[in-house]
Design a protein around this nucleic acid. Structure first.
Lengths: 201, 201
DNA sequence: CCGTCAATTTGACATCGACAAGTTTGGATC
DNA sequence: GATCCAAACTTGTCGATGTCAAATTGACGG
Protein backbone atom coordinates (compact mmCIF):
# COMPACT_ATOMS: atom_id res chain seq x y z
CA UNK A 1 0.00 0.00 0.00
CA UNK A 2 3.04 2.23 0.19
CA UNK A 3 4.72 3.38 -2.95
CA UNK A 4 6.83 6.42 -3.37
CA UNK A 5 5.42 7.88 -0.24
CA UNK A 6 4.92 5.82 2.88
CA UNK A 7 1.48 7.20 3.40
CA UNK A 8 0.64 10.06 1.11
CA UNK A 9 -2.87 10.48 2.44
CA UNK A 10 -1.65 11.16 5.95
CA UNK A 11 1.21 13.30 4.65
CA UNK A 12 -1.26 15.47 2.75
CA UNK A 13 -3.39 15.92 5.84
CA UNK A 14 -0.36 16.91 7.89
CA UNK A 15 0.86 19.29 5.21
CA UNK A 16 -2.63 20.69 4.86
CA UNK A 17 -2.97 21.34 8.55
CA UNK A 18 0.22 23.33 8.77
CA UNK A 19 -0.55 25.16 5.55
CA UNK A 20 -3.97 26.04 6.88
CA UNK A 21 -2.57 27.45 10.10
CA UNK A 22 0.06 29.40 8.19
CA UNK A 23 -1.98 30.86 5.36
CA UNK A 24 -5.58 30.44 6.36
CA UNK A 25 -8.37 29.12 4.23
CA UNK A 26 -7.65 31.62 1.47
CA UNK A 27 -4.05 30.56 1.10
CA UNK A 28 -4.95 26.90 1.28
CA UNK A 29 -4.02 25.23 -1.98
CA UNK A 30 -4.09 21.64 -3.06
CA UNK A 31 -1.00 22.20 -5.15
CA UNK A 32 0.90 23.62 -2.21
CA UNK A 33 -0.10 20.62 -0.11
CA UNK A 34 1.26 18.39 -2.84
CA UNK A 35 4.47 20.42 -2.98
CA UNK A 36 4.99 20.08 0.77
CA UNK A 37 4.45 16.34 0.52
CA UNK A 38 6.92 16.33 -2.39
CA UNK A 39 4.59 14.83 -4.93
CA UNK A 40 3.22 16.13 -8.19
CA UNK A 41 0.28 18.51 -8.30
CA UNK A 42 -2.18 15.83 -9.34
CA UNK A 43 -1.17 13.21 -6.81
CA UNK A 44 -3.73 14.23 -4.17
CA UNK A 45 -6.57 13.46 -6.57
CA UNK A 46 -6.29 9.77 -5.83
CA UNK A 47 -6.79 10.31 -2.11
CA UNK A 48 -9.16 13.27 -2.08
CA UNK A 49 -11.74 13.99 -4.72
CA UNK A 50 -11.29 17.73 -4.37
CA UNK A 51 -9.76 20.39 -2.21
CA UNK A 52 -12.99 20.53 -0.22
CA UNK A 53 -12.66 16.83 0.44
CA UNK A 54 -9.26 17.32 2.03
CA UNK A 55 -10.55 20.25 4.06
CA UNK A 56 -13.44 18.12 5.27
CA UNK A 57 -11.02 15.46 6.47
CA UNK A 58 -8.92 18.07 8.27
CA UNK A 59 -12.02 19.51 9.91
CA UNK A 60 -13.15 16.05 10.94
CA UNK A 61 -9.84 15.37 12.66
CA UNK A 62 -10.15 18.80 14.24
CA UNK A 63 -13.39 17.83 15.94
CA UNK A 64 -11.72 14.73 17.32
CA UNK A 65 -8.88 16.79 18.71
CA UNK A 66 -11.30 19.34 20.11
CA UNK A 67 -13.10 16.58 22.00
CA UNK A 68 -9.83 15.23 23.32
CA UNK A 69 -8.82 18.64 24.61
CA UNK A 70 -12.20 19.17 26.27
CA UNK A 71 -12.18 15.72 27.85
CA UNK A 72 -8.60 16.06 29.08
CA UNK A 73 -9.38 19.38 30.72
CA UNK A 74 -12.51 17.92 32.33
CA UNK A 75 -10.53 15.03 33.79
CA UNK A 76 -8.17 17.46 35.47
CA UNK A 77 -11.07 19.28 37.13
CA UNK A 78 -12.82 18.49 40.38
CA UNK A 79 -15.58 15.88 40.07
CA UNK A 80 -18.14 18.63 40.67
CA UNK A 81 -20.41 18.83 37.57
CA UNK A 82 -20.26 22.61 37.45
CA UNK A 83 -16.47 22.55 37.63
CA UNK A 84 -16.33 19.98 34.85
CA UNK A 85 -18.62 22.07 32.67
CA UNK A 86 -16.32 25.04 33.14
CA UNK A 87 -13.28 22.87 32.49
CA UNK A 88 -14.71 21.67 29.20
CA UNK A 89 -15.22 25.30 28.28
CA UNK A 90 -11.58 25.98 29.12
CA UNK A 91 -10.57 23.10 26.87
CA UNK A 92 -12.76 24.46 24.09
CA UNK A 93 -11.15 27.87 24.31
CA UNK A 94 -7.67 26.44 24.60
CA UNK A 95 -8.14 24.39 21.46
CA UNK A 96 -9.44 27.37 19.52
CA UNK A 97 -6.58 29.55 20.70
CA UNK A 98 -3.99 26.91 19.81
CA UNK A 99 -5.40 26.18 16.34
CA UNK A 100 -7.29 29.30 15.31
CA UNK A 101 -7.44 28.59 11.59
CA UNK A 102 -8.50 25.00 12.09
CA UNK A 103 -11.14 26.14 14.54
CA UNK A 104 -12.44 28.66 12.02
CA UNK A 105 -12.55 26.02 9.34
CA UNK A 106 -14.54 23.69 11.56
CA UNK A 107 -17.20 26.29 12.23
CA UNK A 108 -17.19 28.17 8.98
CA UNK A 109 -18.63 25.86 6.46
CA UNK A 110 -20.51 28.32 4.32
CA UNK A 111 -23.16 26.68 2.21
CA UNK A 112 -22.12 23.23 3.29
CA UNK A 113 -19.25 23.43 0.84
CA UNK A 114 -17.60 20.44 2.31
CA UNK A 115 -19.91 18.12 4.12
CA UNK A 116 -19.00 14.48 4.58
CA UNK A 117 -20.88 11.97 6.71
CA UNK A 118 -17.74 11.61 8.82
CA UNK A 119 -17.57 15.35 9.41
CA UNK A 120 -21.22 15.54 10.39
CA UNK A 121 -20.71 12.65 12.78
CA UNK A 122 -17.62 14.22 14.34
CA UNK A 123 -19.45 17.49 14.92
CA UNK A 124 -22.40 15.61 16.38
CA UNK A 125 -20.11 13.74 18.79
CA UNK A 126 -18.60 17.01 20.02
CA UNK A 127 -22.09 18.39 20.57
CA UNK A 128 -23.01 15.25 22.51
CA UNK A 129 -19.97 15.58 24.73
CA UNK A 130 -21.01 19.09 25.64
CA UNK A 131 -24.63 18.15 26.17
CA UNK A 132 -23.62 15.35 28.54
CA UNK A 133 -21.72 17.81 30.71
CA UNK A 134 -24.75 20.08 30.94
CA UNK A 135 -26.99 17.13 31.65
CA UNK A 136 -24.75 16.00 34.50
CA UNK A 137 -24.94 19.46 35.96
CA UNK A 138 -28.74 19.61 35.74
CA UNK A 139 -29.96 16.14 36.75
CA UNK A 140 -33.38 17.36 37.85
CA UNK A 141 -34.15 19.67 34.94
CA UNK A 142 -36.56 18.94 32.14
CA UNK A 143 -35.18 17.99 28.77
CA UNK A 144 -36.26 21.37 27.42
CA UNK A 145 -34.28 23.16 30.10
CA UNK A 146 -31.25 20.99 29.48
CA UNK A 147 -31.33 21.73 25.79
CA UNK A 148 -31.84 25.42 26.41
CA UNK A 149 -28.94 25.59 28.83
CA UNK A 150 -26.77 23.48 26.57
CA UNK A 151 -27.36 25.93 23.74
CA UNK A 152 -26.80 28.82 26.10
CA UNK A 153 -23.52 27.52 27.47
CA UNK A 154 -22.15 26.60 24.09
CA UNK A 155 -23.20 29.87 22.53
CA UNK A 156 -21.47 31.84 25.26
CA UNK A 157 -18.20 29.96 25.05
CA UNK A 158 -18.19 29.77 21.28
CA UNK A 159 -19.16 33.40 20.84
CA UNK A 160 -16.50 34.59 23.22
CA UNK A 161 -13.62 32.70 21.70
CA UNK A 162 -14.79 33.50 18.19
CA UNK A 163 -14.96 37.22 18.86
CA UNK A 164 -11.61 37.01 20.58
CA UNK A 165 -10.00 35.35 17.59
CA UNK A 166 -11.46 38.03 15.33
CA UNK A 167 -10.11 40.68 17.67
CA UNK A 168 -13.55 42.08 18.38
CA UNK A 169 -13.21 41.58 22.12
CA UNK A 170 -10.38 42.50 24.45
CA UNK A 171 -9.03 45.44 22.50
CA UNK A 172 -5.45 46.07 23.44
CA UNK A 173 -5.39 43.65 26.36
CA UNK A 174 -2.53 41.24 26.83
CA UNK A 175 -2.76 37.46 26.84
CA UNK A 176 -3.09 37.23 30.60
CA UNK A 177 -5.97 39.69 30.72
CA UNK A 178 -7.71 37.89 27.88
CA UNK A 179 -7.41 34.62 29.72
CA UNK A 180 -8.95 36.25 32.78
CA UNK A 181 -11.81 37.47 30.58
CA UNK A 182 -12.39 33.94 29.40
CA UNK A 183 -12.48 32.62 32.96
CA UNK A 184 -14.94 35.34 33.95
CA UNK A 185 -17.23 34.51 31.04
CA UNK A 186 -17.12 30.83 31.93
CA UNK A 187 -18.00 31.63 35.56
CA UNK A 188 -20.97 33.74 34.50
CA UNK A 189 -22.05 31.01 32.12
CA UNK A 190 -21.84 28.29 34.77
CA UNK A 191 -23.73 30.37 37.30
CA UNK A 192 -26.59 30.90 34.88
CA UNK A 193 -26.68 27.24 33.94
CA UNK A 194 -26.64 26.02 37.53
CA UNK A 195 -29.34 28.46 38.52
CA UNK A 196 -31.59 26.98 35.86
CA UNK A 197 -31.22 23.70 37.72
CA UNK A 198 -32.83 25.18 40.79
CA UNK A 199 -29.65 25.93 42.69
CA UNK A 200 -30.17 29.51 43.91
CA UNK A 201 -26.47 30.31 43.77
CA UNK B 1 -17.07 61.74 -12.87
CA UNK B 2 -19.46 59.43 -14.64
CA UNK B 3 -18.45 57.71 -17.82
CA UNK B 4 -19.84 54.54 -19.23
CA UNK B 5 -21.26 53.64 -15.91
CA UNK B 6 -23.01 56.21 -13.77
CA UNK B 7 -21.26 55.05 -10.67
CA UNK B 8 -19.25 51.91 -11.20
CA UNK B 9 -17.94 51.85 -7.68
CA UNK B 10 -21.41 51.60 -6.21
CA UNK B 11 -22.51 49.16 -8.91
CA UNK B 12 -19.62 46.87 -8.03
CA UNK B 13 -20.54 46.94 -4.38
CA UNK B 14 -24.14 46.11 -5.17
CA UNK B 15 -23.14 43.33 -7.52
CA UNK B 16 -20.66 42.06 -4.97
CA UNK B 17 -23.23 41.94 -2.22
CA UNK B 18 -25.67 39.84 -4.18
CA UNK B 19 -22.89 37.63 -5.49
CA UNK B 20 -21.66 37.12 -1.95
CA UNK B 21 -25.08 36.09 -0.69
CA UNK B 22 -25.57 33.77 -3.66
CA UNK B 23 -22.22 32.02 -3.80
CA UNK B 24 -20.53 32.74 -0.52
CA UNK B 25 -17.00 33.91 -0.02
CA UNK B 26 -15.64 31.00 -2.03
CA UNK B 27 -17.67 31.85 -5.10
CA UNK B 28 -16.92 35.52 -4.79
CA UNK B 29 -14.98 36.69 -7.82
CA UNK B 30 -13.88 40.09 -8.94
CA UNK B 31 -14.43 39.13 -12.55
CA UNK B 32 -17.97 38.01 -11.85
CA UNK B 33 -18.66 41.32 -10.11
CA UNK B 34 -17.36 43.08 -13.21
CA UNK B 35 -19.55 40.91 -15.42
CA UNK B 36 -22.63 41.74 -13.38
CA UNK B 37 -21.81 45.42 -13.61
CA UNK B 38 -21.29 44.92 -17.36
CA UNK B 39 -17.76 46.17 -17.47
CA UNK B 40 -14.52 44.49 -18.41
CA UNK B 41 -12.66 42.28 -15.99
CA UNK B 42 -10.05 44.88 -15.19
CA UNK B 43 -12.41 47.79 -14.64
CA UNK B 44 -12.73 47.27 -10.88
CA UNK B 45 -9.01 47.85 -10.41
CA UNK B 46 -9.44 51.59 -10.57
CA UNK B 47 -11.97 51.59 -7.73
CA UNK B 48 -10.63 48.78 -5.58
CA UNK B 49 -7.00 47.83 -5.30
CA UNK B 50 -7.83 44.17 -4.93
CA UNK B 51 -10.65 41.76 -4.33
CA UNK B 52 -10.01 42.03 -0.61
CA UNK B 53 -10.44 45.76 -0.89
CA UNK B 54 -13.93 45.33 -2.32
CA UNK B 55 -14.78 42.78 0.34
CA UNK B 56 -13.61 45.20 3.02
CA UNK B 57 -15.92 47.86 1.66
CA UNK B 58 -18.84 45.43 1.61
CA UNK B 59 -18.10 44.37 5.18
CA UNK B 60 -17.89 48.01 6.24
CA UNK B 61 -21.32 48.74 4.82
CA UNK B 62 -22.52 45.58 6.53
CA UNK B 63 -21.56 46.95 9.93
CA UNK B 64 -23.50 50.09 9.17
CA UNK B 65 -26.55 48.10 8.25
CA UNK B 66 -26.15 45.91 11.32
CA UNK B 67 -26.17 48.99 13.53
CA UNK B 68 -29.25 50.32 11.78
CA UNK B 69 -31.11 47.06 12.34
CA UNK B 70 -30.11 46.95 15.99
CA UNK B 71 -31.08 50.56 16.57
CA UNK B 72 -34.40 50.18 14.77
CA UNK B 73 -35.32 47.19 16.87
CA UNK B 74 -34.31 49.01 20.06
CA UNK B 75 -36.53 51.98 19.15
CA UNK B 76 -39.51 49.66 18.84
CA UNK B 77 -38.92 48.25 22.32
CA UNK B 78 -40.12 49.56 25.65
CA UNK B 79 -37.85 52.25 27.13
CA UNK B 80 -36.80 49.76 29.80
CA UNK B 81 -33.00 49.27 29.49
CA UNK B 82 -33.24 45.50 29.78
CA UNK B 83 -35.91 45.37 27.09
CA UNK B 84 -33.77 47.53 24.82
CA UNK B 85 -30.77 45.30 25.36
CA UNK B 86 -32.83 42.29 24.36
CA UNK B 87 -34.24 44.17 21.39
CA UNK B 88 -30.76 45.00 20.13
CA UNK B 89 -29.97 41.32 20.39
CA UNK B 90 -33.06 40.55 18.33
CA UNK B 91 -31.90 43.03 15.72
CA UNK B 92 -28.45 41.45 15.70
CA UNK B 93 -29.90 38.01 15.11
CA UNK B 94 -32.36 39.26 12.52
CA UNK B 95 -29.59 40.90 10.53
CA UNK B 96 -27.47 37.77 10.61
CA UNK B 97 -30.39 35.60 9.54
CA UNK B 98 -31.29 37.95 6.70
CA UNK B 99 -27.73 38.29 5.38
CA UNK B 100 -25.91 35.17 6.50
CA UNK B 101 -23.01 35.39 4.06
CA UNK B 102 -22.45 39.06 4.70
CA UNK B 103 -22.56 38.40 8.43
CA UNK B 104 -20.00 35.65 8.07
CA UNK B 105 -17.76 37.90 6.04
CA UNK B 106 -17.94 40.62 8.68
CA UNK B 107 -16.82 38.28 11.44
CA UNK B 108 -14.54 35.98 9.53
CA UNK B 109 -11.58 38.01 8.64
CA UNK B 110 -8.88 35.41 8.95
CA UNK B 111 -5.42 36.85 9.32
CA UNK B 112 -6.67 40.36 8.84
CA UNK B 113 -6.81 39.66 5.14
CA UNK B 114 -8.77 42.76 4.51
CA UNK B 115 -8.42 45.42 7.11
CA UNK B 116 -9.26 48.98 6.22
CA UNK B 117 -9.33 51.86 8.68
CA UNK B 118 -12.96 52.37 7.68
CA UNK B 119 -13.76 48.74 8.44
CA UNK B 120 -12.08 48.87 11.82
CA UNK B 121 -13.99 52.04 12.62
CA UNK B 122 -17.32 50.53 11.56
CA UNK B 123 -16.75 47.48 13.73
CA UNK B 124 -15.77 49.71 16.62
CA UNK B 125 -18.95 51.74 16.25
CA UNK B 126 -21.08 48.60 16.37
CA UNK B 127 -19.27 47.52 19.51
CA UNK B 128 -19.87 50.94 21.06
CA UNK B 129 -23.59 50.72 20.30
CA UNK B 130 -23.77 47.45 22.13
CA UNK B 131 -21.70 48.66 25.04
CA UNK B 132 -23.96 51.68 25.46
CA UNK B 133 -26.99 49.43 25.83
CA UNK B 134 -25.27 47.39 28.53
CA UNK B 135 -24.12 50.53 30.27
CA UNK B 136 -27.67 51.90 30.32
CA UNK B 137 -28.84 48.67 31.88
CA UNK B 138 -26.16 48.73 34.58
CA UNK B 139 -25.85 52.36 35.66
CA UNK B 140 -24.46 51.51 39.09
CA UNK B 141 -21.94 48.88 38.06
CA UNK B 142 -18.21 49.37 37.91
CA UNK B 143 -16.57 49.77 34.55
CA UNK B 144 -15.05 46.32 34.91
CA UNK B 145 -18.47 44.78 35.44
CA UNK B 146 -19.91 46.67 32.49
CA UNK B 147 -17.15 45.45 30.22
CA UNK B 148 -17.51 41.92 31.50
CA UNK B 149 -21.26 41.91 30.97
CA UNK B 150 -20.89 43.55 27.59
CA UNK B 151 -18.55 40.79 26.51
CA UNK B 152 -20.84 38.22 28.02
CA UNK B 153 -23.98 39.48 26.32
CA UNK B 154 -22.32 39.87 22.95
CA UNK B 155 -20.65 36.49 23.13
CA UNK B 156 -23.96 34.80 23.92
CA UNK B 157 -25.87 36.43 21.11
CA UNK B 158 -23.06 36.13 18.59
CA UNK B 159 -22.33 32.54 19.50
CA UNK B 160 -25.93 31.51 19.25
CA UNK B 161 -26.63 33.02 15.85
CA UNK B 162 -23.28 31.83 14.52
CA UNK B 163 -23.88 28.25 15.58
CA UNK B 164 -27.39 28.48 14.22
CA UNK B 165 -26.14 29.63 10.81
CA UNK B 166 -23.64 26.79 10.77
CA UNK B 167 -26.44 24.36 11.66
CA UNK B 168 -24.75 23.29 14.86
CA UNK B 169 -27.72 24.25 16.99
CA UNK B 170 -31.42 23.50 16.54
CA UNK B 171 -31.04 20.25 14.69
CA UNK B 172 -34.18 19.53 12.73
CA UNK B 173 -36.22 22.31 14.29
CA UNK B 174 -38.35 24.60 12.15
CA UNK B 175 -37.97 28.35 11.82
CA UNK B 176 -40.52 29.11 14.50
CA UNK B 177 -38.86 26.86 17.05
CA UNK B 178 -35.46 28.36 16.24
CA UNK B 179 -36.83 31.83 16.78
CA UNK B 180 -38.16 30.70 20.15
CA UNK B 181 -34.70 29.38 21.00
CA UNK B 182 -33.22 32.74 20.18
CA UNK B 183 -35.72 34.53 22.40
CA UNK B 184 -34.98 32.11 25.24
CA UNK B 185 -31.26 32.69 24.92
CA UNK B 186 -31.77 36.43 24.94
CA UNK B 187 -33.91 36.18 28.07
CA UNK B 188 -31.26 34.12 29.87
CA UNK B 189 -28.63 36.56 28.74
CA UNK B 190 -30.56 39.60 29.96
CA UNK B 191 -31.30 38.00 33.29
CA UNK B 192 -27.63 37.31 33.91
CA UNK B 193 -26.64 40.81 32.88
CA UNK B 194 -29.27 42.49 35.04
CA UNK B 195 -28.34 40.38 38.02
CA UNK B 196 -24.79 41.63 37.74
CA UNK B 197 -26.22 45.11 38.22
CA UNK B 198 -27.52 44.14 41.65
CA UNK B 199 -31.09 43.49 40.64
CA UNK B 200 -31.87 40.14 42.28
CA UNK B 201 -34.33 39.16 39.58
C1' DC C 1 -10.73 72.50 -31.44
C1' DC C 2 -7.45 70.34 -28.75
C1' DG C 3 -4.89 68.44 -25.07
C1' DT C 4 -4.90 66.27 -20.78
C1' DC C 5 -6.20 63.05 -17.57
C1' DA C 6 -9.09 59.74 -15.48
C1' DA C 7 -12.01 55.73 -16.65
C1' DT C 8 -12.13 51.72 -19.10
C1' DT C 9 -10.60 47.97 -22.25
C1' DT C 10 -7.54 44.61 -24.18
C1' DG C 11 -3.98 41.58 -23.52
C1' DA C 12 -0.77 39.04 -20.93
C1' DC C 13 1.17 36.12 -17.06
C1' DA C 14 1.38 33.08 -13.17
C1' DT C 15 -1.45 30.19 -10.46
C1' DC C 16 -5.23 27.38 -9.35
C1' DG C 17 -8.60 23.04 -9.47
C1' DA C 18 -9.91 19.46 -12.22
C1' DC C 19 -9.59 16.15 -15.80
C1' DA C 20 -7.32 12.81 -19.25
C1' DA C 21 -3.83 9.89 -20.59
C1' DG C 22 0.45 7.78 -19.86
C1' DT C 23 3.96 5.57 -16.57
C1' DT C 24 5.70 3.25 -12.61
C1' DT C 25 5.31 0.10 -8.83
C1' DG C 26 3.89 -3.52 -5.71
C1' DG C 27 2.01 -7.67 -5.26
C1' DA C 28 -1.20 -11.42 -6.42
C1' DT C 29 -1.52 -15.35 -9.39
C1' DC C 30 0.10 -19.03 -11.84
C1' DG D 1 10.31 -16.72 -10.53
C1' DA D 2 7.77 -14.68 -14.63
C1' DT D 3 3.45 -12.34 -15.77
C1' DC D 4 -0.07 -9.36 -15.38
C1' DC D 5 -3.09 -6.04 -13.18
C1' DA D 6 -4.72 -2.46 -10.47
C1' DA D 7 -3.46 1.23 -7.71
C1' DA D 8 -0.30 5.19 -7.09
C1' DC D 9 1.78 8.69 -9.27
C1' DT D 10 3.32 11.91 -13.23
C1' DT D 11 2.81 14.87 -17.15
C1' DG D 12 0.07 17.67 -19.82
C1' DT D 13 -3.90 20.25 -20.56
C1' DC D 14 -8.15 23.27 -20.02
C1' DG D 15 -10.94 27.00 -18.27
C1' DA D 16 -10.98 30.41 -14.67
C1' DT D 17 -8.96 33.71 -11.59
C1' DG D 18 -6.22 38.10 -9.65
C1' DT D 19 -3.15 41.36 -10.97
C1' DC D 20 -0.35 44.06 -13.87
C1' DA D 21 0.97 46.85 -18.23
C1' DA D 22 -0.23 49.17 -22.27
C1' DA D 23 -3.59 50.93 -25.42
C1' DT D 24 -8.01 53.22 -25.97
C1' DT D 25 -11.90 56.02 -24.99
C1' DG D 26 -14.35 59.75 -23.22
C1' DA D 27 -15.15 64.21 -20.59
C1' DC D 28 -13.92 68.75 -19.72
C1' DG D 29 -11.30 73.03 -19.47
C1' DG D 30 -8.61 76.11 -22.21
Amino acid sequence: MAYHHGDLREALITAGRSLLEEKGLTGFTLRECARRAEVSHAAPAHHFKSVDDLLAEIATQGFGQLMETMAAEARRAKPDPAARLVAQGVGYMAFAAAHPMLFRLMFYRETERFQTPALAEAARAARALHYAAVEAALPLATRETKVRMSDFAWATVHGFITLLLERQIGEGENAKALRARGVAILADMAETVMRAGGVPD
